[in-house]
Write a protein that binds this DNA or RNA. Structure first.
Length: 584
DNA sequence: GCCGTTTTCGGCCCGACTGTTTTCAGTCG
């Protein structure tokens, strides 16, 4: 997408300008970059539809940046950016990706050692050249080497699915300390972002004993924290903040604040940064000052024991962490129009589970038992179909046989105390021409049909869009699985015209899946929001291939919450009868 | 370079920690 290319360039321009101590312009370029990144419409489309004027309406984009965007759309280049790079031929994005290196250091590394990329940097650090530079030392050199190692291993971010269990484990360990009054994950973990840079945990101390006592408590917590099992390095250990690296390769920060600061500190450390900046500007308009220690009128601190207090003083209702991205939630809160987003316990059944019929780990009966434990009212078996031979896909005959087995188990369950209803679906394959690999007569006998693209992912945009649209127009296809095909940190979405897909989905009453698998999360949050606004219904499914994957539903729900989805938007929050009636 | 119920100029979010220095700049979130 053009927007991401532009954003990358503007971030780099910001860094180049910062190197030269240019005031204020860097923030302006950063703001424009962020705005482009989060825009759902491609800049090329915006320009085509509304010309220069529409480009200037992008938040943070004025006349000068608009001209640069248009120059890029027309020529694929931006002269201003090229000139900056000519003046300083360094790979800015690559170098500033190293933890601890910012534009000013890049300037000095270039000035003294002619370092222009990561390779040069590593070579110079290994040769001990960096420690000799003014304002650098042995420690900076060591940190740079470790930063490079980290980058090589992890690309800097981790999946929420990998991090959340670890974060929960650490919080549980810390909870055993009697000095702690409150503890909560903060940062992007609390906002349930799909990928996480590091884990932030906020702690408040129990009261009593004066400042010496408080210091001793904080010391004890910090010592306990840096010696937790799995810690391989301590980056820093202070009175209020400590930071460690875990064996898995990511960092965890904890912050200790006094109890009376809990509300404002939790708000502050949950972020996002953009949400907080917008909130602080709102506070300033009300002649208030907002920081992690509270809300202040002149020098007077107003009571903010809880997050609710913080928002209330600024004149807003409390905002769910998943919404705090400065994507309109503050404006919605001002108008008291925040969505009532779906809760983590609102799912009544998972509609996309693979059984051992297609090579999954567990039998239909075992899946049903696990679903009862999850508190579900229904569970949908959706095995692969025959095109996916490698996944033991089922053909028409096997589907019929499976149907008989499900009926048998269903009637058996009806005699038990805990009732659950097993539905038969399938995850059929959308062929390159948009047809389905199972005959319509067989599809029509199932409770519902999921269809997904599993092959020829690199089709041109128009063809891929037509392919999915044809599948949606099939009267037997109810749900499109993982509709954009992305794999986080591995593979981009396939090229599709998502607006067109939404239009046909609405028209044909086709449901789009929110696949909960931690490396899919597809639809993603911004697409969920677009679908909701288009009036398209969605289903949150796990795509579990064994019963111990059923819990990943949490990540799909989180994604739905980040996409402002409400219960009415998600069909598997509905009771069984309403659900079955909605299927085509 | 952007922005506006303090509007077309004069502002622009805020604090902790580190590593290098002897008082602070740079980076980060």
């Amino acid at each position: 997408m053009t927007n991401n290319e532009l954003a990358k360039i503007f971030y780099e321009i910001a860094s180049y300008l910062e190197m030269d101590d240019v005031p204020f312009k860097p923030q302006a370029y950063e703001k424009a970059a962020l705005s482009l990144e989060t825009l759902s419409k491609d800049a090329r489309e915006i320009y085509k539809d509304g010309g220069e004027k529409a480009i200037e309406e992008i938040p943070g984009v004025g006349k000068s940046i608009a001209e640069k965007i248009i120059e890029y759309l027309k020529t694929g280049k931006i002269k201003y950016y090229r000139d900056l790079k000519k003046k300083m031929p360094v790979k800015m994005g690559e170098l500033t990706a190293v933890e601890g290196i910012g534009p000013k250091m890049v300037r000095d590394l270039w000035k003294y050692l002619k370092i222009k990329d990561l390779k040069d940097l590593e070579k110079a650090a290994k040769a001990g050249k960096i420690r000799k530079l003014p304002n650098f030392g042995e420690k900076s050199e060591q940190n740079i080497l470790e930063g490079i190692e980290f980058l090589k291993r992890s690309h800097g971010r981790f999946l929420l699915g990998e991090i959340l269990p670890e974060a929960k484990r650490i919080v549980e360990s810390l909870k055993t300390l009697k000095e702690i009054e409150n503890i909560s994950p903060a940062g992007s973990v609390r906002r349930m972002k799909e990928t996480i840079g590091d884990v932030d945990i906020l702690i408040t101390l129990k009261k009593g004993g004066g400042s010496a006592f408080a210091k001793a408590s904080a010391d004890k917590i910090m010592n306990f924290f840096v010696s937790l099992p799995g810690v391989i390095k301590t980056w820093g250990k202070g009175a209020t903040k400590s930071s460690v690296r875990l064996r898995q390769g990511f960092d965890v920060d904890i912050r200790v604040v006094p109890n009376e600061f809990y509300g404002s500190a939790l708000q502050y450390f949950t972020g996002s940064k953009e949400h907080n900046v917008a909130l602080r500007i709102l506070a300033i308009e009300k002649k208030l000052k907002l920081n992690e220690y509270g809300v202040f009128r002149a020098k007077k601190k107003l009571p903010t024991k809880t997050e609710e207090d913080v928002y209330k003083i600024i004149g807003l209702p409390w905002i769910e962490p998943e919404l705090r991205e400065n994507q309109g939630e503050i404006e919605a809160a001002q108008k008291n129009e925040l969505p009532k987003i779906i809760g983590y316990n609102d799912i009544l059944g998972d509609l996309h589970c693979h059984s051992n019929w297609d090579g999954g780990g567990d039998s239909i009966e075992e899946i049903a038992e696990a679903a009862i434990k999850m508190g579900y009212q229904y569970i949908g078996i959706a095995d692969h179909t025959k095109f996916l031979r490698i996944e033991h896909g089922l053909d028409e005959k096997q589907l019929l046989k499976q149907r008989q087995e499900i009926q048998k188990i269903n009637s058996k369950i009806q005699n038990l105390k805990s009732k659950i209803h097993i539905l038969q679906g399938c995850e059929a394959n959308i062929m390159p021409d948009g047809s389905i690999d199972i005959k319509d007569e067989a599809l029509a006998k199932l409770n519902y049909v999921i269809a997904g693209v599993h092959s020829q992912l690199k089709m041109p945009k128009e063809k891929m869009t037509e392919r999915i649209i044809r599948a949606m127009r099939n009267p037997n296809v109810d749900i499109i699985s993982h509709p954009t095909g992305r794999l986080l940190q591995k593979r981009d979405e396939y090229e599709i015209d998502f607006d067109k897909i939404l239009k046909v989905a609405k028209e044909t009453k086709t449901i789009l899946e929110i696949n909960s698998y931690p490396d899919r999360l597809d639809l993603k949050d911004t697409n969920i929001r677009k679908a909701k606004e288009a009036g398209v219904k969605m289903a949150i499914n796990t795509d579990a291939h064994s019963i111990d994957q059923l819990h990943v539903i949490e990540f799909g729900i989180a994604q739905a919450r980040r996409g402002w989805a409400e219960k009415k938007d998600i069909i598997n929050c509905w009771p069984l009868e309403k659900l079955l009636n909605f299927f085509k």
